[in-house]
C-alpha cells in the first residue's frame, strides 16, 4: 500500500535520474488512469468534449495530495506530464510489439488501437512528432505536453511557463496544427 507522500518522493527520485523509480511509479498511476479512460469514453464525438486530459490532471493531483508548494507546481506538472506521456507511450509500444509478434492474439487488441491503426492518430506517432517539435520550437512542445499529457488549463500552463493565457492558447493551436501536419506527412 503506497501512501501519497511516496509518490512525490518517487517522482523526485525519477527526476534526479533513478530510472527504477519509474517502475514503482507506474502501478500507482493505473487506478487513476481508469478515470482518464472513462473520461475519454464519455467524450462522444460531436457532443461536449469531456477532456480526458483533465482527468490525467486530476489523477496527479490526487496522487500528490497537494503536497507540493504552489511555486513548485508548474515544475511538478511538467514532470507529471512527462511521466504520463512516458507511461502511455511505453505501453502502446509494448502493445504494438505484441500485436506484431502474435497474430492470433489480435482479438485482445483493443478497439481503440484498431481505431488508431485505421487512420486515427496513435500516441506513438504523437510522441514522435512531439520530439520533432521539440527540436524546432521547444516552447510549443512543452506547452503541448502540459496540455495533452498534463491536462492543464490554459491559465495553469500560462502560470507554469510565464506567458499570457492568450499566448498559450495560440501556441497550442499552432503546435497542434503543426503536429497534425507532421503526423500526416510521416504517414504518407
Amino acid at each position: 500500500m503506497q501512501v501519497p507522500a511516496n509518490f512525490t518522493q518517487l517522482l523526485t527520485e525519477w527526476r534526479s535520474g533513478q530510472p527504477q523509480a519509474l517502475d514503482r511509479l507506474t502501478p500507482l498511476i493505473y487506478d487513476e488512469l481508469r478515470r482518464l479512460a472513462r473520461g475519454y469514453m464519455r467524450a462522444e464525438r460531436g457532443s461536449h468534449t469531456l477532456q480526458a486530459t483533465a482527468v490525467v490532471h486530476e489523477a496527479f493531483l490526487r496522487l500528490i495530495q497537494a503536497n507540493v508548494d504552489l511555486q513548485d507546481r508548474g515544475h511538478f506538472f511538467a514532470l507529471a506530464s512527462r511521466l504520463m506521456r512516458r507511461v502511455l507511450v511505453d505501453h502502446a509500444k509494448s502493445r504494438s510489439r505484441l500485436k506484431r509478434n502474435a497474430g492470433f492474439r489480435d482479438l485482445s487488441v483493443s478497439d481503440s488501437e484498431q481505431k488508431a491503426g485505421s487512420g486515427e492518430v496513435s500516441v506513438i506517432a504523437l510522441d514522435d512528432a512531439l520530439e520533432s517539435l521539440l527540436q524546432l520550437e521547444p516552447r510549443l512542445a512543452r506547452v503541448i505536453e502540459l496540455h495533452y499529457f498534463g491536462g492543464m488549463t490554459y491559465d495553469e500552463i500560462a502560470a507554469a511557463v510565464g506567458a499570457s493565457a492568450a499566448t498559450v492558447h495560440r501556441d497550442i493551436r499552432l503546435g497542434k496544427a503543426w503536429l497534425l501536419s507532421e503526423i500526416g506527412g510521416a504517414a504518407k
Binding site: 493505473y30 488512469l33 481508469r34 482518464l36 479512460a37 473520461g39 475519454y40 469514453m41 467524450a43 464525438r45 460531436g46 468534449t49 477532456q51 480526458a52 486530459t53 490525467v56 507511461v87 502511455l88 507511450v89 505501453h91 502502446a92 502493445r95 483493443s110 481503440s112 488501437e113 481505431k115 488508431a116 486515427e120 492518430v121 496513435s122 500516441v123 506517432a125 504523437l126 495533452y148 499529457f149 493551436r173 499552432l174 497542434k176 496544427a177 503543426w178 503536429l179 497534425l180 501536419s181 500526416g184
Partner: peptide, 24 residues
C-alpha cells in the same frame, strides 16, 4: 496549418485517451 487548425475534433486528445483506455 490553418486548415488543420480548423478541425473540429481534437484528434490528439483522442490519441491520448485511446492510449490510456488500452492501458487500462
Amino acid at each position: 496549418l490553418l486548415t488543420l487548425d480548423g478541425a473540429r475534433e481534437d484528434t490528439l486528445l483522442n490519441a491520448v485517451g485511446a492510449a490510456a483506455e488500452s492501458l487500462l
